[in-house]
């Protein structure tokens, strides 16, 4: 798959994005569905510019770690003039795998399905 085929951008603190892309690659070999961006590397305006570049290349969804981090803020700025772009916050590996492997559909539906998978993957057990 070429770089032009990137469908999603993962943005987060530290190595969050690179780590998730690495995990996707290990599980299903589809790392090139995603671009990984660390907000550590960019000031706010540069982060917004990088996101715009990925959107121009076809990315439909931005996945971020926190709902209120600089990544989500930059994505919301990009969404202002890219109304088809979808933001998913609180992304995790289960959500990304669903997006990479799930049936191809529009970004809003793909995001909704990914969010459901990601949410259902979080649980706790034990402790007694």
């Amino acid at each position: 798959m070429s770089e032009k085929a990137i469908r999603g951008v993962i943005v987060g603190h530290g190595d969050f994005a690179a780590g998730l892309v690495s995990a996707v690659q290990q599980i299903c070999g589809l790392a090139d569905v995603f671009a990984a961006v660390s907000n550590r590397e960019y000031p706010a305006q540069e982060l917004e510019r990088v996101l715009r570049e990925h959107v121009a290349r076809g990315a439909e969804i931005v996945f971020t770690d926190l709902p209120g981090g600089s990544a989500a803020t930059a994505a919301r700025r990009v969404m202002r003039d890219n109304p088809g772009l979808v933001l998913v916050t609180g992304a995790n590996l289960a959500a990304l795998l669903e997006f990479a492997l799930g049936e191809r559909c529009g970004p809003a539906d793909a995001a909704r399905t990914a969010v459901e998978k990601g949410r259902s993957a979080i649980s706790s057990s034990g402790g007694e």
């Binding site: 926190l66 209120g68 600089s70 803020t73």
Partner: peptide, 11 residues
């Protein structure tokens, strides 16, 4: 902080 509201500040 030029990022204003973000993870380091809020969390």
């Amino acid at each position: 902080d030029d990022r204003l509201i973000h993870g380091q500040v809020v969390v």
